[in-house]
Nucleic acid binder design. Sequence first.
DNA 1: CAGTGAGCGAGCTTCCGCTTGACTT
Length: 535
Amino acid sequence: MIVESPAKAKKIAGYLGEDYIVMASVGHIRDLASKASDLPEGERKHSWSKLAVNVDDGYRPYYIVHPSKAQTIRDLKAALKDAKELLLATDEDREGEAISWHLLEVLKPKVPVHRMVFNEITPEAIREAVANPRELDMQLVDAQETRRIVDRLYGYPVSEVLWKKIGRDAKSAGRVQSVAVRLVVDRERERIAFSSAGYWDIDAVFSPEDFKARLTSLDGTRVAIGKDFDQNGALKSQDKVTLLDEARASALAAGLKSASFTVRSVEQKPSQRKPSAPFTTSTMQQEASNRLRWGGQRTMRIAQSLYENGYITYMRTDSVSLSSQALNAARVQVTELYGPEYVEATPRTFPNKSKNAQEAHEAIRPAGDAFRTPDELRRELNADEFALYDLVWKRTVASQMVNARVATTTAKIIGTATDGSLAEFTASGTVVVFPGFYAALKDVPEEGSENEHELPALTEGQVIDARGLNAIGHTTSPPARFTEAKLVQRLEELGIGRPSTYASIMTTILDRGYVWKKGSALVPSFIAFAVVRLL
DNA sequence: CAGTGAGCGAGCTTCCGCTTGACTT
């Protein structure tokens, strides 16, 4: 049996016993020749030679076995000599199907060949796959080959156009990298074109319990805030809003100093928060970026180590689905750690956000049919591994827990200034009524929950005091630059790139000098503007 | 006889996606 990953091969070998030899192709075994000199003698002088695609004869590709793969091929051939049967068990996606086809072409097996697939590595799933082989799907193989040829046919010549038209500082172009560069450049253009606007409001602190409120309305008209402005710094809608300048805001704050304030309304609204879907490669990179400040490369290196040592499932995946084994493990763990009332009644499933998803693997989760808690592994893992495992564990377990229930209280407080203006302040507070999946996250609160705070008990008509009234100036900000994680998220939404390439796309555009990093922000170089304009 | 310069040809760069391990900083 041939699979793609050595770690996977080792695991499956343990399940199948001595009748099977399980080996790995270690990814692709052949690729288009990368330069004309790698072609056979006599084929090096055609106009298409350096493309390694014969565009004059049906776009016939010239494949070569990369020298670093020669030993793998020799090992596979040697093992095949004594085999009764060859089972091609590469991943169930476009690239995996192609790897199987290339294996057939190179190994030329004399024994019966079967193609089989499995989405989870359990003894039952493997046995079922062995019992239900299928044929190679040549449509999928053709799709991969076409993808490969078109990327070459555009990537090489368009890169060469850049060399000629812009100079050798323009290094490369391609279906994926050029879109990434363009997103960064477009964003920078928006920032350059942006005009910021200034506006003022008043922050108030009221007693009891010194809670904070903000001026939201003046004489019945809403006070302008950041989102009322467009990118030119002009007020957006025709909606009636009052725009406060510094003088007006300061005068108003002074005029309210001795005012008496009344609670005009108190409204409480219950709401629920849902846990996020289990990790894909892209969301894991985003979370590690947010929580741990790690780049994609580092996250993937740590994940690889966790995977090879059997702590997590495969780390290059576009699926948010958990196997039945994983669902069960998560639910058992939630019951044990938090109690049955924390387990969602039926297993939660999540829609896949990426329309190009091929779902050859399940979501990234703790390995095994019983999860080990981060605390149980604290001694076995180094600091980085522990930090990433902790994120994976929390995300997986939380995904099978019940919603958090929260209550948001909004209070409106009014007062009249010495000049007769009626000022309305708004305060809001949120309390967690039932933590649900928050219980698993603990120190890692979900988005938006960091600032949750409670309001004191207030009743309508209650008269309260202002402890402080401060006019505060604000300016609108341009759209933020992309971070690595945000760019990966956007590329995935657009269906560009694959889990195995997200981290390397970033190094490509950095290495080519198209972008540089300012802290974690991606800033385009001058040459990037030129390249995007030409393309 | 040594050095210079023109002209010519060969070879390199470049794409995306799948794996790990051997390197260097």
